[in-house]
Write a protein that binds this DNA or RNA. Structure first.
Lengths: 339, 339
DNA sequence: CTAAAACATGAAAACGATGCCGGTAAGGGT
DNA sequence: ACCCTTACCGGCATCGTTTTCATGTTTTAG
């Protein structure tokens, strides 16, 4: 690694002080035109680049945003793209750290970014995270923080997330409307907010339609196709087996689909299936899978915008919330009644 | 943002000099045990964290790796996971910048990371990138750099990449073995190395099998399902239409699949299809798609390891290469002959 | 012709931490 | 009583930049 040209080199070469060079480079009025020209010319020639580290130390700001996410699956990658786009535009660089759904790694990542002195945090928690001391620590240090997608409630910071209850309602009501009578749910980890919200929407909708829910038809499993496959097999082997499944993520829906196909059941005739996230793959499968669109890219952009606003405004924004409205995309896996 | 506790605060409180505090914190022998204890106790109490920025400025090293990638699709995300895992382990933080296949953004990202003073670069170029001045600039500044996946040849740095020629050979030979006679290729952008390597492997294999290739059966298109769909439709509407397609990425293969299905052709009976990358989705589609596994996660890990080695060793490693061997995964889209 | 204003530049502190060098005091040896 | 060692600690420079204040010179106005 070669030594970079510094302001000192220029000063020395032109027999000026570093202060004058610094001012000349930023076109300060109180530097003579000739000096300015000379300084700029030499800076150009020596390929001078101001040392960001020195500036960061001085200004106590790094122009870097720490992004902590649980994984890099399709949905998260799309959100990160949105965040990245807005951040880049605003002159910020993004440090993405994935916890791989591990609480320990989430803590480690937080620590690392915290003493890398990022200007702030954009966080979506892992599915293992049940205690929020590390998040609260960010907050007590008065470092800007916004939560997105997988938000937590007992903490007072801006949040951007999907109306998960509504998304689940849309999907469930659709299944009901299509004439499915015994609808099961494949939910995620028990302590995960988005999973519980979707479950709540599901249960509310069944209640509104006066459908009683068999407790055995509620299954929790990790966000993982294999587990979903096993769980679905179990559902299908029950005495009073369901005639439809609402899976709270497309990954789970795909696992379920494999089990349904294997059982020789035809969708949508014998069995209904709806997922969540509207990953592109849902459109491609046979049958294509009904799913809930969550506008990940837009959510990412909105998150970054909110973050930047928080960073630059002095007013308290801690109770701001942006709730994205989901949209149901109906496909072959559940469309029995053609309009 | 609250002021962090500094070494000065501790020094002042204990009526010591900053140097002594600094040494005490690092358990230097020439500080009395009582002083050390007092310093550490106070540091603990005030939640002192050394300022990384100050250290970076002093040591001219940031413990940060700049990773530049063309996008965040499944393959890249998997590679990034691999890089991340190794880097985290070694105490490095990764700054991932995606160029979104845009040359301009790749340049911008390089500039940003360059003056963020990352310790080095891990790069995979965009499909638009045809001129490499920005990459060479990294090299002339003697900043550690390794290329991976989409490498460029006329530059002397360590490289980690797939044996793309071999991968294409495996897929093509398989299609030939299954009795397909007129095999077309859906290639990527014309100037992209990996695309040309795969194309070369394809053509070599046809030649070895004494199959003449219809020039019209070579199609270049962007890495994009929609383009592939259109391109495949065109192929299928030719007078002498092909009876199989080798797509150099699964995204392209999927686009082709949609066109093939739409034309009413049955795979593998009427038509053969093979992709590249072995994305999980290929296994799930109907028919499932034959593809070439490229071990992305391992490639990511190998890349990061190589990078760290370069960073810490003094010897010249510029001609090191790791070439990953691909593996063909045969699926329904092309398996006509069951063994 | 002199005082004040305008202009151009430099010195030094600041950001937070490290590390070399030097200094002081206590203790041991002659 | 003198010197030398050892233990412990402080001063200062350093990293690269900005910024405030001070200084010196020139120009302008009264």
């Amino acid at each position: 690694m070669e030594r970079q040209t510094t302001i000192k080199d220029i000063a020395l070469a032109l027999r000026l002080s570093t202060s004058t060079v610094s001012r000349a480079l930023r076109d300060a009025a109180d530097v003579s035109i000739e000096t300015r020209k000379a300084v700029k010319a030499l800076a150009e020639e020596l390929d001078y680049q101001p040392n960001k580290l020195a500036l960061s130390l001085l200004k106590n700001q790094t122009n870097t945003i720490g992004v902590i996410i649980p994984n890099l699956d399709y949905v998260m990658a799309t959100m990160v793209k949105g965040i990245d786009e807005v951040a880049l535009e605003a002159g910020y660089t993004v440090m993405v750290c994935q916890s791989d759904e591990s609480f320990g790694r989430e803590i480690l990542n937080t620590k690392r970014l915290l003493d890398s002195l990022v200007d702030g945090f954009i966080v979506s928690v892992s599915s293992e995270t049940m205690v929020y001391e590390h998040i609260k620590k960010i907050q007590t240090k008065k470092i800007p923080l916004v939560l997105f997608d997988r938000v937590i409630n007992n903490i007072n910071v801006p949040k951007i997330f999907l109306d998960n209850v509504e998304g689940a309602r849309l999907a469930t009501q659709h299944l009901v409307d299509q004439g499915y009578k015994r609808i099961a749910i494949l939910a995620g980890p028990e302590n995960l907010g988005i999973s519980n919200d979707r479950k709540a929407g599901f249960m509310q909708t069944l209640k509104q339609n006066k459908i009683t829910l068999d407790k055995n038809h509620i299954i929790h499993c990790d966000f993982n196709q294999e587990y979903a496959y096993i769980a679905a097999k179990e559902l299908l082997s029950m005495n009073k087996r369901p005639d439809a499944i609402f899976a709270i993520s497309d990954r789970l829906a795909i696992g379920a689909m494999l089990a349904i196909k294997e059982a020789g059941l035809k969708m949508p005739k014998d069995f209904g299936l709806a997922g969540f996230n509207n990953e592109p793959v849902t459109k491609l499968l046979t049958p294509s899978i009904t799913s809930v669109e969550m506008f990940s890219f837009e959510m990412g952009k909105a998150t970054a915008k909110m973050f930047l606003e928080m960073l630059h405004s002095d007013e308290d924004m801690s109770d701001k919330e942006i709730i994205i409205k989901p949209k149901l995309v109906i496909r072959e896996s559940s469309r029995r009644i053609s309009e």
